[in-house]
């Protein structure tokens, strides 16, 4: 199986960067157009999770908080693999892992139910819809792969990978 790195990045997840990366991913060739549409949507969603929630962040003009993390996009023979890594509180890592398990254990119909329920009950405003992980699995139809690596007694690295099949 061949594996080619299309993109790797480490640093602050500015919207301007996410947008340029995402647009290039979507448009870089004409093949697998459906897969690349899905990849674009998942790329934006998971990258914005890093931007919004990473515990390692930059402050812009003392006002805007931009999350710092890493991303990797690989092309395999039959799929794209997109990974994000960012710092989280250890307590949040447990919650995130639990959410991934719930999402992975749900079929498409259950995911749709979860998505509707979660979006309706989200407090909105700065909290968004809180359905990014559900959306990633609904679009890719593949399970989330996650890994937690503890940094110290307070923080961990949370790594999340989604595979998007080309066909």
């Amino acid at each position: 199986m061949t594996s080619k790195t299309i993109l790797s990045y480490k640093g602050p997840f500015y919207i301007e960067l996410i947008s340029v990366f995402g647009t290039n991913i979507r448009n870089f060739n004409d093949t697998y157009s459906n897969a690349r549409k899905k990849l674009f949507k998942i790329f934006i969603e998971l990258s914005q999770n890093v931007s919004n929630y990473s515990e390692n962040f930059h402050m812009v003009n003392n006002v805007q908080r931009i999350g710092v993390g890493e991303l990797f996009l690989k092309e395999l023979d039959t799929a794209y693999c997109f990974t994000t890594i960012n710092q989280v509180k250890r307590t949040d890592a447990e919650i995130l892992a639990e959410r991934c398990e719930i999402v992975n254990a749900s079929d498409q119909m259950k995911l749709r139910e979860l998505k509707r329920e979660q979006r309706l009950n989200s407090p909105g405003e700065k909290f968004g819809a809180r359905i990014g992980l559900i959306q990633a699995v609904m679009l890719s139809k593949n399970q989330l792969e996650y890994k937690v690596e503890n940094i110290n007694e307070n923080f961990s690295y949370f790594s999340l990978t989604v595979k998007i099949d080309k066909y």
Binding site: Q48, R119, G128
Partner: peptide
């Protein structure tokens, strides 16, 4: 042609 999940919450509102 695309809206992220945060935007879907606003559209739903």
């Amino acid at each position: 042609i695309y809206l992220n999940t945060s935007s879907t919450k606003c559209v739903l509102d």
